[in-house]
Each structure stands twice: as structure tokens, then as C-alpha cells.
Computed example of a mutant assay.
Amino acid sequence: MSDEERNAILGLPCEFIDVAANHDFIRLGENSRHACLVAEGLVGRFAQTAAGARQIFALHIPGDMADLHSLVAPEASTGLQALSRSTMLAVPHAALLPLLDLYPGIGRAFWRDSIVDTSILSTWVLNLGCRSGGARLAHLLCEMAVRYALIGRGRDLRFDLPATQLHLAECTGMTSVHLNRMMMELRGRGLVRTRTPKIEIIDWKGLTELAGFDAGYLCLPSSAAEQVRLALRVR
């Protein structure tokens, strides 16, 4: 984007909203008038059955626009839950939409953001349908290591993941008991070390091989990919 386009975004009106852990701040069927950027914390996008069973199919970390699609589809077909205490930056749709006509670069950036979200979603669906429980959990940890490294919040394969075992189970399509067993297995194989919320990946090669992890689906530009490699200190 150009400097003018960046300044237009920085000049948008916004409201900081503090959200308690485990609070659904966008509910299913709700009409939204704002798009939310995660300033702090961890947010899960979820769908839910009539019986209350919940599947989280995206995690949003600081810097992510958690519901950019609400600009064109304001009625929420999915919900957003703060998995940890979080701070959201709410930007009115009425202020965002005119920028798309005035600044094509902003529209392209939003389009790319949506493409990345779709690519991640496709990979999560593949994980749920085609990988074992241990591989699904390993894949999630690999993804979060890369994404936290990209924003400067993970280094040397260490990062904080402020999610409970229930949250991770809802991300990976397992019960909490099964999730706990899979985490113990990863620790027992010397792949990871955990002490909530801290995650340390001991054997990156082994974890990525178990997960079948390839970061290509995160659509990182070459400069960002190099930044992540240096932060993770992996070849």
C-alpha cells in the first residue's frame, strides 16, 4: 500500500474493547456494524451445533482482522470468542467501506487477507478429515509457532499460547481427554515442552514431519518467510 493509503487506515475512527476470557463477543446470527482487529490476546472463530457442541476453525492473534468478511456479510454465520483476556479494536463498517472505493490498494490488501484466511481454513479442514489426533495437534503448534514468530512474539521455537486444553480440543476435533493424551504423547516423544501458556518446540523437524506441516498455506511473502526462519532458527 502507498503512504496515503496507510495514513487513511491509521486515521479511521475506532474503539478499544476489553473482552473477558471465554466471552463470545460476536454471537451467531448477530448483525455486526464493526470489523474487529485483535490488539491483544487470542480469539477463536467457531461454529456450534444446536446441542452446543463447538468447533473452533480459526485462531486470531494480535494484528489479525478477525471478521473482515463482515464488511460484506454483516450477519454472523460464525461466532468469535476471546479465548484469553483480549483487547479488540472495533472499526465501523461505515468508515471502512468508503476506503475501498477511494483506495484500490486497501481493497487488494483486504482481499489478500481474506484469501489467507480461506487458505488456513482449507488446511484446518484437511487436518480434521485426514490426519490423526497427534498430527492435528502437532500441525496446530507448528502453525502458531510460525505466526507468532512473524509478529515478533515467538523466538527460538518458544511462544505463549493462551488457550486451555478445551480450546485446543475444539480446534482439533478431539475431546479434552484425547487432547491431553496427544499432548502427553508429543512431550513423551521429545517433540515439545509445555507449561501453560508457554510452548517450546524441542524437535522442529520431528514435529513438522509428524504434522505433515508445510507453511506454504500461510501465503507468506519471501521477506516474511526469511524473518520467520531467523526467528525460529530453523533451516
Score class of each variant (00 low, 15 high):
L126N: 11
R131P: 05
A215P: 14
D24C: 08
L137N: 03
S223N: 14
G154W: 01
T87V: 15
E15P: 02
E30S: 13
L97I: 14
D203F: 08
E15L: 12
L28D: 04
I26P: 05
E185L: 15
G188S: 07
T164K: 07
I151G: 00
W111F: 14
D156L: 13
D3A: 15
L218D: 00
C36S: 15
R112N: 15
R108Y: 14
E75G: 08
A215Q: 11
L220S: 01
P62K: 04
F57C: 11
L218W: 03
R136W: 05
E15M: 12
R229G: 03
M174E: 09
R195P: 09
L166Y: 03
E5W: 01
S70I: 08
M183P: 00
K198F: 09
S86V: 01
M183V: 12
L71M: 15
N31P: 04
E30Y: 07
G134D: 08
A225I: 04
A58H: 14
L168D: 00
D24V: 03
E30L: 08
L191N: 01
E209A: 12
G133R: 06
R112H: 15
Y103K: 09
L220N: 00
D3F: 10
R136S: 03
R136Q: 05
K198Y: 03
L128Y: 13
Q55Y: 03
S2G: 15
A95W: 04
L10I: 10
T49M: 01
I199W: 04
G133Q: 00
M182N: 06
E4S: 13
P92M: 04
G44F: 01
S32Y: 05
D214R: 13
S32A: 15
I201G: 02
Y217C: 07
D3P: 02
L157C: 13
S114I: 12
V146M: 11
D113F: 10
L166N: 03
Y148H: 14
R193V: 13
P104F: 00
L157R: 09
M184I: 11
V38F: 02
A73M: 11
S119H: 12
D18K: 14
M88N: 07
L80G: 00
S122W: 06
A149C: 03
R235H: 14
L89T: 07
V177Q: 12
A50E: 13
I56N: 05
P221M: 08
L12N: 07
T164Q: 09
R158A: 12
N31I: 15
R153S: 09
S86N: 00
R147F: 06
L102H: 13
Y148N: 05
M174T: 11
V146I: 12
E170M: 09
M1Y: 01
A95C: 08
T208E: 05
L97E: 04
L186E: 02
N22Y: 07
L100K: 06
L28E: 05
L150I: 10
A138T: 02
E209I: 08
L10R: 15
K198L: 11
A35F: 04
R229P: 05
G190N: 10
T49Q: 08
L230V: 15
V234N: 01
T194H: 07
V43A: 03
T196I: 12
F213I: 07
R136A: 03
A21E: 06
V125D: 11
Y148A: 05
H167W: 04
F213E: 07
H23E: 15
I106F: 00
S122I: 11
I9F: 14
S132Q: 10
Y217L: 03
L207R: 01
